[in-house]
């Protein structure tokens, strides 16, 4: 579904992505794991067309995504830090998004809006919201149009335990529907029962792309956090 071929991106001297090639198919849920600054977010931004790769290309459903914009109707993106116009209320943000996307995505999935009880605070302005509530808004927006591909950048950062569980349940449901999921997180225990594949990145290089079962077999550890810790220790940076 998404194929990245030899994607390279440099920011000045820093190589954020170095010849990254990935193939992702429907029904997989892929976790991007790696130390801070290893290029996870840059890779996600390349997928969304927010960063243009220096070389290499990415195809979405066999179509090159450079200079294309329509493919983004299939993507729901939850950013790492949700930044929204300060003056708008929650209700206005949702109305605006529905306005923009209702032609391409007529089916709305408002389950998360209900579960997070965003309707009760819908008249609050975005600048008055706490970090966790912003995350809830971002999550609800990502799932709102029931897209085929969900890209979640640190979804559980800043969420309280109840909201984290709600979000994880929702992710599991979407996974069961056969959608492609990208999740980055540093809280590996959150990922454990959601993901099927692991992409490990370090210093802009793609170190490996394995299924979870394969990784468990290779490292001899059943728990993801231990398995990843073992991988990280093997290659001291």
């Amino acid at each position: 579904m998404i194929i990245a071929t030899n994607v390279t991106k440099k920011f000045g001297k820093l190589t954020a992505l170095n010849n990254v090639s990935v193939t992702c198919n429907r029904g997989q849920s892929i976790s991007l794991i790696g130390p801070n600054g290893s290029g996870k977010t840059t890779f996600i931004k390349c997928l969304l067309g927010m960063v243009v790769p220096d070389s290499g290309f990415i195809t979405f459903n066999q179509q090159n995504i450079s200079h294309d914009w329509q493919y983004r109707q299939h993507i729901g993106y939850m950013p790492q830090t949700g930044r929204y116009p300060e003056n708008m209320t929650i209700a206005q943000i949702f109305d605006m998004m529905k306005d923009i996307r209702k032609k391409t995505n007529p089916v709305l999935d408002e389950e998360l809006v209900k579960l997070f009880e965003l309707e009760n605070i819908s008249s609050k302005r975005m600048r008055t919201l706490s970090g966790g509530t912003r995350q809830k808004v971002s999550a609800a927006l990502a799932f709102l149009f029931s897209p085929d591909v969900l890209i979640l950048d640190e979804p559980t950062a800043g969420l309280d335990p109840v909201a984290t569980e709600i979000l994880k349940d929702k992710i599991r449901k979407e996974k069961a529907k056969g959608k492609l999921l990208f999740i980055t997180s540093h809280i590996l225990s959150d990922l454990e029962d959601i993901i099927t594949e692991v992409i490990y990145m370090q210093d802009g290089d793609l170190r490996f792309h394995k299924s979870l079962a394969q990784l468990q077999e290779d490292t001899g550890e059943m728990r993801l956090s231990r398995a990843i810790a073992q991988v990280m220790q093997k290659r001291p940076s």
Binding site: L48, M50, Y71, P85
Partner: peptide, 13 residues
């Protein structure tokens, strides 16, 4: 308006 633009570039526009 950076944050507004950031919000919109991830949408099909």
């Amino acid at each position: 308006a950076t944050e507004f633009i950031e919000l919109l570039v991830a949408q099909p526009l």
